[in-house]
């Protein structure tokens, strides 16, 4: 592994200044579960590594304000999985966080890192899209917030400018509550990179939000407001054509060795229908239209 300089700022301001100074030669280190692999295989060769874990503003925390839950940049998957508020309001995020690697990985991997990597297969991207998460960013010109859907750009690309870093991810608590579920397609039951990641959210007004990843350059969010998908009395067959249309964005790569495009597309439908059923089942009683 090649050498680099290591910086351990204690304020966001210091980190931003370093990032601004080094630009693409700097890499942020939070959980490091992807970064260290890159250091070792030579695909990432930074001049300076900026460790965020000594920054008090970013210290692992999950804050419940009543209207939203804010997950700091250094909070790890285990924190998320164990947090009562997240479990209550965002079960699909818990389901996604729970399958990010092994226990050992989840003790290190951060939600912010999972998103900032810009991997199309990031498990947490679909639930964050379904839950309309906001990304809080700090940079040389101050702080800003943007919807996750704008933040995620493409493979290995997110909407961060030079000098910017993610400080937190905020999840507005759905009001009225929704039913949601996460599912994925893997090659084995043990830890695996997913060939499909998929999250479904259904609200009482009949709106279905579906987000899916690993089948294109980024995770996509699509919304059905017809009420057909969310209708518990409608058959799967009746929903199928609509579901198919919602997967129109999927362009799985024929070069992947994890799954063929045909299989991924077919499984999108299967998993989509399954997640939809689970989400409808989780919709709080009395909230169905």
């Amino acid at each position: 592994m090649r050498g680099f300089q290591y910086a351990r700022p204690v304020t966001v301001g210091e980190a931003v200044a370093l990032l601004d100074e080094y630009g693409p030669d700097a890499r942020l280190l939070a959980g490091g579960t992807d970064l260290v692999i890159g250091f070792r295989d030579g695909s990432i060769r930074p001049k300076v590594v900026i460790d965020l874990k000594r920054i008090s503003e970013l210290r692992p925390s999950i804050e419940h304000t009543g209207e939203s839950i804010s997950i700091s940049a250094c909070a790890v998957m285990t924190d998320i999985v164990e947090h009562a508020g997240v479990r209550e309001h965002f079960p699909a995020l818990v389901e996604a966080a729970q399958v990010v690697g092994s226990v050992q990985i989840r003790n290190r991997a951060t939600l912010a890192g999972n998103i900032c990597n810009g991997s199309p297969a990031a498990d947490t991207a679909p639930p964050l899209l379904v839950y309309d998460a906001m990304v809080a960013v700090s940079g040389p010109t101050g702080a800003r917030r943007m919807p996750i859907d704008e933040f995620i750009v493409g493979p290995k690309r997110v909407a961060l400018e030079r000098g910017e870093l993610v400080t937190a991810i905020e999840l507005p608590i759905p009001d009225p509550p929704i039913g949601s579920a996460y599912t994925r397609l893997t090659r084995r039951w043990g830890t695996d990179l997913a060939s499909i990641t998929l999250c479904c959210g259904v609200d009482g007004a009949g709106v279905t939000r579906l987000a899916y990843g690993s089948v294109g350059p980024r995770a996509f969010l699509v919304v059905d407001e017809s009420g057909i998908l969310a209708d518990p009395h409608m058959s799967d067959d009746a929903k199928a054509p609509l579901l198919d249309r919602m997967f129109a964005e999927a362009t799985p790569s024929p070069r992947s060795m994890r799954a063929s495009p045909e299989y991924r597309l077919a499984m999108l439908r299967v998993l989509g229908a399954r997640a939809l059923r689970t989400a409808i089942g989780r919709l709080p009683k009395g909230s169905t239209t």
Binding site: G32, T33, V36, S102, Q104, I105, N107, R108
Partner: peptide, 21 residues
């Protein structure tokens, strides 16, 4: 980070020591 042979406890939590500086 796939095999766990390098697992140690850091502040009580299991982690892959191959993936941390």
């Amino acid at each position: 980070g796939e095999c766990g042979a390098c697992t140690v406890l850091v502040d009580g939590r299991a982690m892959n020591s191959c993936l941390m500086l």
